[in-house]
């Protein structure tokens, strides 16, 4: 799952640093992700993991780091 998330960030996140080596808790917004590119990341994650993020999850903190994205996907796929 981690690799899939990092690949999506690399492709859609518009990060200034390498998504493959970014620390788990590194702030993706500080790494260059904008609110616009975060929407593309959300769309790619929904397609990749066949999930829909409920509106309560659509906020900065949930998409703020690799770790927080992983936690959100795990929550949605666990059910």
């Amino acid at each position: 799952m981690e690799d899939q998330i990092r690949n999506i960030l690399k492709e859609h996140g518009r990060l200034a640093s390498d998504a493959a080596t970014l620390a788990d808790n590194a702030d993706l917004y500080q790494a260059g992700m904008t609110s616009h590119s975060s929407v593309n990341v959300m769309l790619a994650l929904e397609a990749e993991f066949d999930v829909e993020f409920p509106d309560r999850m659509l906020k900065r903190a949930v998409f703020g780091s690799v770790a927080s994205i992983r936690a959100a996907i795990e929550e949605l796929t666990a059910a």
Partner: peptide, 12 residues
């Protein structure tokens, strides 16, 4: 344009 982008993921 910002709203258009957000509505691609916002459901309710």
């Amino acid at each position: 344009a910002k709203n258009a982008s957000m509505l691609l993921v916002h459901k309710d």
